[in-house]
């Protein structure tokens, strides 16, 4: 039984149909990368996986006791967040909001969890700092710590390294890889970085006119994978 199964999924928004007949599944502990050109429907797929939007057809079936709202999410930065006055602590703690239900305040366990995740991301010294004054890489780590507060099972990362310099990018990938291998957290990552896909992914989902889903080796051996790799190297 897999953690998440997509069955004959149709994606689209408004009257526009993006793609049809998408099938894939994610098992516990896997590292799935979603690749594809701009406008191919990656963001729509992400929104469907998170339950923010209903797919135009087909179903997304969570398994092994996972509820759809137990997916940790690392979003792309929004304009609102660029000048948001909040400390690292406030933001990471807000990841625990899902556990609170109607209760207005955070519990001791929530606070301990937030503290542990801040330490895990190496942010302890920055706990009281303001989010908008941090570097891009630090901001991404804060959002990752927040996602870890929300869930320990499945992480959905939406272009986690966009806008980061090479050193920060490497650090970020290292962190994600550690979460996947040492802490056994299942990862779904949307990315344009094929080098990273080849290095870290266990499975690849290519979204486009002819979607392709397979293991890392299968993808890069396929014509599509080969074609896409050459394209992105040009």
């Amino acid at each position: 039984m897999s953690l998440l199964t997509a069955n004959n999924l149709t994606l689209g928004y408004g009257d526009r149909l993006l793609l049809k007949g998408l099938n894939f599944s994610v098992n516990e502990g896997e590292f799935l990368c979603i690749v594809g050109e701009n406008g191919s429907g990656k963001s729509t797929l992400v929104r469907c996986l998170l339950g923010l939007q209903k797919p135009a057809g087909g179903v997304i079936q969570p398994g092994e006791g996972l509820a759809l709202n137990q997916i940790g999410y690392l979003p792309q930065q929004t304009v609102v967040q660029k000048d948001f006055p909040a400390t690292v602590w406030e933001i990471v703690l807000s990841g625990c909001q899902g556990h609170c239900g109607l209760w207005p305040f955070y519990s001791k366990a929530d606070k301990a969890l937030a503290k542990a995740n801040i330490a895990r991301m190496g942010l302890t010294e920055l706990t009281r700092r303001c989010y908008r004054e941090l570097s891009g890489g630090q901001q991404q780590r804060v959002l990752l710590a927040r996602a870890l507060c929300a869930t320990r099972r499945l992480m959905l990362l939406d272009e986690p390294v966009s806008g980061l310099d090479p050193r920060m990018t490497a650090e970020m990938y290292h962190l994600i890889d550690k979460l996947n291998h040492q802490e056994k957290i299942t990862v779904i990552m949307v990315t344009h970085d094929l080098a990273a896909v080849r290095e870290y992914a266990s499975h690849v989902l290519h979204i486009g006119k002819k979607p392709l889903f397979g293991t890392n080796q299968e993808y890069f051996a396929s014509d599509l994978g080969h074609h896409f790799t050459t394209l992105s190297q040009m």
């Binding site: 998170l50 999410y73 609102v80 967040q81 807000s94 909001q97 899902g98 609170c100």
Partner: peptide, 18 residues
């Protein structure tokens, strides 16, 4: 706390069950 979560990142809050 809920107002903060909804203000900072609506999508995240929604995706994690708020």
């Amino acid at each position: 706390n809920k107002i903060f979560a909804c203000t900072f990142d609506e999508d995240f809050a929604r995706a994690t069950g708020t």
